[in-house]
Design a protein around this nucleic acid. Structure first.
Length: 261
DNA sequence: ACGGATGTTATTAA
DNA sequence: ATTAATAACATCCG
């Protein structure tokens, strides 16, 4: 479940379970996700401890007591599972064994995730051309970034090179709450609507984190509760419509979200 | 049984 | 040089 809020929850999960324990062994049941040789991961991580966990857009960065950091990208189906004395969870790609017999498994059913080892976070950001993090960015910076863009606002919001952290589901949510049509050209959005979008971006992401990603606990008025073609709009008599924007399934209310901003 | 799924990226095309 | 649409990756679920 991997957009910014979900990655934040994985970050918290690692903080609660896996810091400050010596790593004694690592298994790779499947190595196609590895962005460095398996031996490098072993050489660099075994005998060390995780020191901190941080989120960077949709990436989870786990720093160690030594130099390199372990970085996970979750793709569509990545998860972390902390467990002990059981069979590894299904689809495990990397299993870290700690000294106390607890283990942390990275699972990824569709294998769209990636596992990195990096010495230098700044160069990692550059190599991946990551835009500023959606929760870190200032309003001014946000407005400046949108200023340069011309394409559909949804495609801009979900472009990790512009802003990092926002994905398909939450971008729909922000646009719905702002009554902006997802195909609206970014350059045609009024200054006041851009400011509103900034506020809703933060609001949606923070609320999702606050509710620990449990969608049924999100407000009933949110689009996320109505992501189905033909579902009732929570704000008017209209029906939710499904279209494609930037190749992704997009849900919106044609009555609330008119083409012009 | 076929279409779709929370993501990214390489390739084409405009 | 940009930008936008499409395919591909791999696999399960409804």
């Amino acid at each position: 479940m991997p957009e910014l809020p979900e990655i934040t929850l994985f970050r918290n999960y690692v903080r609660e379970t896996s810091l400050k324990k010596t790593i004694k062994k690592i298994d790779f049941p499947e190595s196609s996700l590895l962005q460095a040789p398996a031996e490098d991961f072993k050489n660099e991580l075994i005998g060390k401890k995780f020191q901190a966990a941080e989120r960077l857009g949709k990436y989870l960065v786990i720093t160690t007591t030594g130099s390199p950091s372990l970085i996970f990208h979750f793709g569509m189906t990545g998860k972390l599972e902390y467990y002990s004395n059981q069979d590894p969870p299904k689809y495990s790609k990397m299993i870290l064994y700690f000294e106390d017999d607890y283990r942390l498994a990275f699972t990824c059913r569709r294998k769209l995730g990636k596992i990195y080892l990096t010495e230098d976070l700044e160069s990692f950001k550059k190599e991946n051309e990551l835009g500023p993090d959606a929760l870190e960015i200032s309003e001014k910076e946000f407005l400046n970034l949108l200023e340069e863009k011309t394409g559909a606002i949804k495609a801009v919001l979900t472009d990790q090179h512009v802003i990092s952290g926002i994905g398909n589901v939450y971008s729909d949510e922000m646009l719905y709450q702002c009554k902006i049509h997802p195909k609206t050209k970014t350059s045609e959005i009024s200054a006041s609507d851009k400011k509103k979008l900034y506020k809703k971006m933060k609001h949606v992401l923070e609320m999702a984190i606050d509710k620990e990603g449990v969608r049924k606990d999100f407000p009933k008025t949110w689009m996320i509760q109505h992501r189905k073609d033909g579902a009732d709009c929570s704000k008017c008599d209209g029906k939710v419509k499904k279209i494609k924007v930037g190749g992704r399934s997009t849900y919106f209310c044609p009555t609330c979200q008119k083409e012009e901003g």
